[in-house]
Design a protein around this nucleic acid. Structure first.
Length: 312
DNA sequence: CCCCAGGCTTTTC
DNA sequence: GAAAAGCATGGG
């Protein structure tokens, strides 16, 4: 870690809540020093330490990451260009004053522009299990299939792992990989299969990153893969493809749509048809272009404030 | 043995 | 076509 810089954000930013809001399962908190966060991003180790509400210390090996100056890369990665208070409609605070009060604690949370493949695999691990178990699965994938990297930071050696490449997961034995998927064999099979698709170029994540691609088409393409339905497809779009209009609907989102926004559809079981109906409904409550971004803040707020669930 | 946890696929009407 | 049942695993 021979390069170090300070980044100031315009609005308050909470990296801890951001990293552990359930959008990323890659970043690790060092148990001995709970104040810094480390991960390998674009093959480059990064260490980030929050020193004030709007100030970060960033340690890297280079001033440039993925061909972009470090400060610009981090600003883009954590979407510092987005003002999270402004992503809600103008009349939102008047329509839902009690909710708005709860939400103010969550404006320092940002959605990250994560790697598409990493997001795809991570969220395929997220069906019907709790969030701590999802973290465990992804960290096991890193340990068993991700390239190991040791770095030194403040006099200590820290071990990190790359997220496994598509080629590496494509070559994995599904039975062996199932130790990383909660012993769920079908899930392991689907992960290996989709990794092969990406490695072969049959699934073109760069093409899917085109911001002009209609959301419905993007979702339809992603759903052609076994193990990916509407919800996972929308998560890949939102967290991995920078599509802040994508609005993933899971059990928690369904619950808050019913409770906070009086959706009657949300009170019924979540069928594909109702998924699409709720998706349309959410766009009338939230700004369509930022429905998913706002939805993630609502999701995190709902889980923590109302359900009292832990994310790590 | 029950239910729940950031769903998806197959069967059935 | 769409609703209902089945699936899959660990933890409380």
């Amino acid at each position: 870690m021979n390069y170090y810089t300070i980044i100031k954000t315009r609005a308050p930013f909470d990296i801890r809540q951001t990293l552990f809001s359930g959008q990323s399962f890659l970043w690790n908190i060092n148990k001995d020093e709970p104040d810094f966060y480390a991960a390998i991003i674009k093959s480059k180790p990064l260490i980030i330490k929050q020193i004030a509400d709007n100030e970060l210390e960033v340690y890297a090996e280079d001033k440039v990451i993925n061909g972009v100056p470090l400060v610009d890369f981090i600003s883009h990665y954590f979407t510092f260009d987005i003002d999270t208070e402004q992503i809600f409609p103008d009349n939102f605070s008047h329509l839902y004053p009690t909710l708005w009060q709860l939400l103010t604690d969550y404006f320092p949370v940002r959605i990250m522009r994560q790697d598409p493949f990493e997001t795809m695999i991570s969220f395929m691990c997220a069906q019907g299990i709790g969030m701590p178990l999802i973290r465990k699965q992804v960290s096991m994938l890193l340990q068993n299939y991700g390239e190991k990297r040791t770095i030194s930071y403040s006099g200590k050696e820290i071990t990190l792992h790359h997220f496994p490449s598509p080629e590496r997961l494509a070559a994995a034995n599904p039975i062996a990989l199932s130790t990383c998927t909660n012993n769920n064999h079908p899930r392991a099979r689907n992960i290996v299969r989709i990794a092969k698709g990406v490695a072969d170029g049959k699934i073109d994540l760069d093409a899917l990153s085109d911001p002009l691609l209609p959301l419905s088409e993007l979702r339809r393409t992603l759903c052609q893969n076994e193990g990916v339905g509407y919800k996972i497809a929308d998560c890949i779009a939102l967290f991995g493809l920078g599509r802040f209009d994508a609005f993933p609907i899971d059990t928690h989102v369904k619950q808050y749509l019913g409770q906070w926004f009086n959706s009657t559809t949300a009170l019924q079981s979540l069928t594909p048809a109702r998924y699409l109906a709720l998706d349309a409904e959410a766009r009338t409550i939230l700004k369509p272009d930022f429905a998913g971004y706002a939805g993630h803040l609502l999701f995190h707020c709902w889980r923590k404030e109302i359900k009292g669930l832990r994310t790590f």
